[in-house]
């Protein structure tokens, strides 16, 4: 590991000033991804700016009935918060479906959103990878890709974003706020991650050196009836091979409002707008749910070894929406 300097950020302004002054500096949240990547040599920062003591560790209701979640709130505190559990239960479920109790105690909201892909070629510094070394090639396309993307990928990179939390936040229209040396800014989470194209090494639309300060959830009554379901290769403590965050408002057998996002299928949490369009105003029955899944997955471009994901996601979407509809009928 390269030697590095370490500072505790005194305040938000101090944190962004430290990063602005050094292109090789990185923010340190819980370190559960960054320290791991420093050990393997993927990340080689010259300076770590520890942000965990910044006053960004609160979860507060907003005036309009949404929630504002600070960037250094731990994954555990987010999942355990009564208002999150009451108003956005799928968010609690998504966070709890990720990693382990130990890791969730360490991991922060900001770090979770910016965690890097688990593609094995990305973490193997001995080989090529367009995301790590632009222009070096993507061995996953011809190689090991059974857990890679089926939506929105390109020939240059087929990696998936590993966050569970981000899938639920995407379904609920979260907005990310950040601070830079030039002042604050905000981005819908749906626009945080850049399209892959031929620049997979450019992952987010954040200005360089931006500190994520928090995530705001707008009020969403539909989210009170929401679910997150994750499929993985073992029962617990594993990354998703596919996941769904969904919310459904059904009145008199008709879908009034629906939210749907898919995980582990693309380079970002995937908001399923085409599926939502099919659901809205349609009868809350299995055929509708299947048609919604098909509408979204029509754009899927599976590789030789990950075609199973298309079937998996179709079944998962139908199953979760069916459960929500049954719950609404009770």
């Amino acid at each position: 590991m390269r030697e590095f300097d370490y500072r505790r950020a005194p305040d938000v302004a101090g944190a962004v000033a430290l990063l602005a002054a050094d292109p090789d500096a990185r923010f340190l949240g819980g370190g559960t991804n960054l320290v791991d990547l420093m050990k393997t040599g993927v990340e080689r920062p010259a300076l770590l700016v520890d942000v965990r003591e910044l006053p960004l560790d609160r979860i507060e209701s907003t005036d309009d009935g949404g929630l504002r979640i600070g960037a250094t709130v731990t994954n555990s505190d987010l999942a355990a918060h009564p208002e999150v559990r009451r108003r956005y239960p799928a968010l609690t479920q998504a966070v709890l479906a990720g990693a382990s109790g130990q890791l969730r105690n360490m991991a922060t909201v900001g770090g979770n959103l910016l965690q890097r892909t688990r593609c094995g070629y990305f973490t193997d510094v001995a080989g090529p990878c367009n995301k790590r070394v632009p222009g070096s090639g993507c061995p996953a396309v011809e190689g090991e890709h059974h857990n890679h993307a089926v939506l929105g990928a390109s020939d240059h990179c087929v990696a998936v974003h590993p966050s569970d939390m981000g899938v639920a936040l995407t379904a609920f229209d979260a907005v990310v706020s950040y601070e830079t040396a030039d002042g604050p800014g905000a981005l819908p989470l749906a626009d945080l991650y850049l399209p892959v194209g031929d620049t997979p090494h450019r992952e987010t639309a954040l200005p360089s050196g931006a500190l994520i300060t928090g995530v705001t959830l707008p009020p969403a009554p539909v989210a009170a009836r929401s679910r997150y379901r994750k499929v993985r290769e073992r029962a617990s403590y594993a990354f998703a091979i596919g996941s769904v965050a969904a919310a459904l408002d059904v009145r008199d057998g008709v879908v009034r409002d629906a939210r749907l996002a898919l995980g582990a299928v693309a380079s970002r949490p995937w908001r399923a707008r085409a599926a939502e369009a099919v659901l809205s105003g349609a009868p809350a029955v299995g055929d509708t749910f299947a048609a919604a899944a098909d509408a979204e997955l029509a754009a899927a471009r599976p590789l030789p070894d990950n075609g199973y994901k298309v079937t998996l996601m179709r079944n998962l979407v139908v199953a979760v929406l069916t459960e929500l509809a049954e719950e609404a009928a009770r």
């Binding site: 370190g31 320290v35 109790g101 105690n105």
Partner: peptide, 27 residues
Amino acid sequence: CDQGQCGACTVLIDGRRAVSCLHLAVA
């Protein structure tokens, strides 16, 4: 594992469990 994957290194930090292999001593 030294990678956060096994839990053998679990300790309590401020009363909460954490993996000490991904926690910097200085932090």
